[in-house]
Nucleic acid binder design. Sequence first.
DNA 1: TAAGTAGATTGATGCCCGTCGATTTGGAGC
DNA 2: GCTCCAAATCGACGGGCATCAATCTACTTA
Lengths: 117, 117
Amino acid sequence: MPVDLELSPKQKRAAGERCCEPVVYPDVQREEALRMAEVAKALGDPIRLQLVDVLRKHAGKVCVCELVPLFDISQPTLSHHLGKLRAAGIVDSERKGLWAYYYVIPDALKELSAWLS
Amino acid sequence: MPVDLELSPKQKRAAGERCCEPVVYPDVQREEALRMAEVAKALGDPIRLQLVDVLRKHAGKVCVCELVPLFDISQPTLSHHLGKLRAAGIVDSERKGLWAYYYVIPDALKELSAWLS
DNA sequence: TAAGTAGATTGATGCCCGTCGATTTGGAGC
DNA sequence: GCTCCAAATCGACGGGCATCAATCTACTTA
């Protein structure tokens, strides 16, 4: 007497039976995904993405006072965005007197970039 | 008599004077930034990032019932994440009877990937 | 020392997000 | 018809986000 005639659909599923082909697993593990998602989230705002674009293409370091007039947002909001980018490990800053210079941390986007391509 | 002795600091700034070197502009324009930020935002969640990872590496199409047991979230939450990825133009789905098969849209990540590298 | 300035912080507001349980939708099969 | 099932949608909750005006913090300069 065949065993699986005694199994309910729920029991079948509990026993590992699937609706279709064998299950596939993500190559990217949780910690890796957490790191990359954090970077992606920080880039998930058009202003922050443009900020990174400016900072990346400017070889030297860029003063905040240069960034403010580029975007139609207030100075505190820009500061907030720069803080988010710093918290995500994408940029860092250096103060010289009154001015703050921001720059993209080398290889900060490397892992995400590699995964995407 | 030098003109800028008559200008207050505020007037100087209003006239375009800067604290430092000439201003740099983002190469990425607003619409481009909006599109890429939308994709990045969708990838800004570890579960969604792993979902895309699974879907990308599975050549064929993957059934939702295969995805549910991979993550420690409820079925409605997984459905919500898939909906977000679809809204961002990253994945699409095809229904066959009871089951729904999801797949990554070719070139959906191309623009962001190119910008990142 | 006092005034001016660049940038960060605070507090408030309105909106969106991730999550869940419960329900709904629509196809499969008896 | 009716039941069972996969997947989507709904409604609610708690938390985080983008934004601003106002304030604070250091530093510079007169």
